[in-house]
């Protein structure tokens, strides 16, 4: 059953929930970026390809 009525608690916790959501989203993006960079840096063939060799 969906919550149809906003409790005062929801308003009070809004900034914390939004902030946590954004932090988790940023974490996912950072991990993805880290994975891509690590794979590229550690794999010489990809690095050479990117450098145009």
């Amino acid at each position: 059953m969906a919550i149809t009525k906003l409790h005062d608690m929801h308003t009070r916790r809004r900034s914390r929930n939004v902030g946590l959501g954004l932090a988790l989203g940023a974490f996912v993006v950072l991990l993805l970026g880290l994975t891509v960079v690590k794979v590229t840096v550690l794999d010489p063939s990809i690095a050479a390809q990117e450098a145009g060799y």
Binding site: M9, R12, R13, S15, R16, V18, G19, L20
Partner: peptide
Amino acid sequence: NHEAGFGDYFA
């Protein structure tokens, strides 16, 4: 009356 906000954790 004040639930900890994101800013409080950041502080």
